[in-house]
């Protein structure tokens, strides 16, 4: 009996939270439409978010993308070369990096850096009365803090994903030159011949969706902090876990829709 009662409580709490998150997301999109009216105060937050999520993540993204591109080339040449199918390396690079890894790895880095930062910062703002300060001035915390962060994360994630693709491809070319020196122009023309419009569209769609999801989940969890600072790390962990689950699920669904249907 106790198990059923506990299960019912968890179900009720989860349903309430999902409904609250839905309302929060709806409010954020509604306020996104009027964001330009508050550019005097929200624009600085937006620029800071783009700088932090995008520009300051470049060294880590560069390192990861160059390494991933190189590793795929090394592994690919080893396996495909055995069967005399070396040219398939371009297909693998496009499929693995451009269609899949770039958006998901970039999203994971953004969750680790910016998702945690957003929920921690907003959580601390709640406990320090800063959210109340905004409310007392008539400023909506969703307009000022969430909308600008969401736009910032989407712009940064989109740009970082493109950058990741370019860096990974460049890394692939660098490493392939170790095995058999290859003409730069030939390498890229072969690579681009394997790319389709769907590859580009899917990358764009994923980065926008991931950016919206990460920003909304992290902001929601941060603002759900009630009074105690001990709630902040708990909410941050929750933000990270839920963001990862969201990104993986969304990735599976988008990939399935584009390539299987």
């Amino acid at each position: 009996m106790k198990v059923i009662v506990d299960f019912w409580k968890v179900l009720k709490r989860s349903t309430t939270e999902i409904f609250e998150f839905y309302l929060f997301a709806l409010d954020t999109f509604r306020r996104l439409l009027t964001f330009s009216r508050q550019k005097q105060i929200g624009f600085t937050v937006l620029l800071r978010q783009i700088m932090f999520t995008g520009y300051e993540a470049l060294p880590l993204i560069s390192f990861l993308a160059l390494s991933i591109g190189g590793l795929i080339i090394i592994q690919g040449y080893n396996i495909l070369g055995t069967f005399g199918q070396g040219d398939l390396i371009y297909v693998i690079l496009v499929t693995v990096v451009i269609r899949e890894l770039s958006s998901i790895l970039t999203a994971l880095i953004v969750i680790a850096r910016s998702g945690t930062a957003i929920s921690t910062e907003l959580g601390n703002m709640v406990t320090n009365n800063e959210i109340n300060l905004l409310l007392s001035c008539g400023i909506s915390p969703v307009s000022y803090l969430v909308v600008s962060r969401m736009v910032g994360v989407v712009v940064a994630l989109f740009t970082l994903t493109i950058y990741f693709n370019l860096a990974a491809v460049f890394g692939g070319w660098l490493f392939s030159a170790l095995f058999s020196p290859i003409n730069f122009r030939y390498f890229f023309s072969q690579l681009f011949s394997q790319m389709t419009m769907a590859d580009i569209l899917i990358g764009v769609l994923k980065s926008i969706l991931f950016g919206i999801g990460i920003a909304l989940i992290s902001s929601y969890q941060g603002l759900k902090v009630n009074i105690a600072s001990t709630e902040v790390p708990q909410r941050t962990i929750r933000a990270v876990v839920l963001s990862i689950v969201f990104v993986v699920f969304a990735d599976i669904i988008i990939t399935a829709l584009f390539y299987l249907i």
């Binding site: 005097q40 105060i41 800063e130 109340n132 300060l133 905004l134």
Partner: peptide, 24 residues
């Protein structure tokens, strides 16, 4: 509203804090 403690937004300087409601 004046809070019982000195409440300001932590990540901006005090001038921006004072001008926040004005700008809005």
């Amino acid at each position: 509203f004046v809070f019982h403690q000195g409440v300001h937004l932590a990540n901006i300087i005090l001038r921006e804090n004072l001008l926040l409601p004005v700008k809005y």
